[in-house]
Design a protein around this nucleic acid. Structure first.
Lengths: 123, 123
DNA sequence: TTTATTGTATTAGTTACTTAATACAATAAT
DNA sequence: ATTATTGTATTAAGTAACTAATACAATAAA
């Protein structure tokens, strides 16, 4: 896992997103056990309280659940995970298009620019 | 101006971006005078110190400059403004593609998804 | 010349985030 | 039965961002 944290946004929010990505990508499979709060905190080089805060939010959203002493597990609801992937993708696209619009690029213009960019135009 | 501020990121950073956008979009023309720190702060409903902090950073980057008592002005260097537009656009594209890659979408897949999304697929 | 406006600086207080240290109850592992 | 590990909670301290209030020098405007 790449725990690339920066100080631009609250760490716990960044942790939430990184773990979500890890679940979506399958690094953490549905139904599998997560490392303990302490281990995850150690991995990410953050305080256990901060990691706990992130996990609590993931739990609130239903993506993970905890069992008192055996540990914390990823949901087995693969549809929920697929939904999350789809939702996040749409959010990203919407935000991106809005950003580009603010910069003065219409939708089709943005699409063309993207296509050009992908063809290796990093001028 | 839409001073839509949230608590996800430091306010002064959001102010910087909003003002950059306003310059790029032409709302603040090259060479023109900005409202005073106090007026801008009032508009945005933030503390003058916070607005000052944002403006100081814009000044450091050369996008605006201040004249002791007559006020603060947008650079007349239109090339710098165009460069900023181009730079920001590329940054946005890069970040967006990276986000989509993390979600599991390859570049071409993302492009196709975007195209579909633009055609009105908000399912 | 006087006044008002400008950018700028300073000091203090509040809040949210983070870290640190510690503790406890539940239970899996031994 | 004992021990270790789990999630969880609490208290305290430090830091950065933000607000608030105020002040000052420079100068445009009157």
């Amino acid at each position: 896992m790449a725990w690339n944290l920066n100080s631009d946004r609250p760490i716990f929010m960044q942790l939430i997103e990184i773990i979500q990505i890890s679940i979506i990508s399958g690094k953490y499979a549905p139904g599998s056990k997560l490392p303990s709060v302490r281990d995850l905190a150690s991995e990410a080089a953050v305080n256990p309280n901060t990691m706990q805060k992130a996990l609590a939010e993931l739990e609130r959203s239903g993506l993970v659940f905890s069992q008192r002493t055996s540990g914390r597990f990823i949901t087995e609801d693969v549809a929920m995970i697929e939904d999350l992937k789809s939702t996040l993708a749409k959010e990203k696209m919407k935000q991106f298009l809005e950003s580009m619009r603010q910069l003065g690029f219409q939708k089709e213009e943005t699409l063309a620019l993207m296509s050009k960019f992908l063809k290796g135009d990093h001028s």
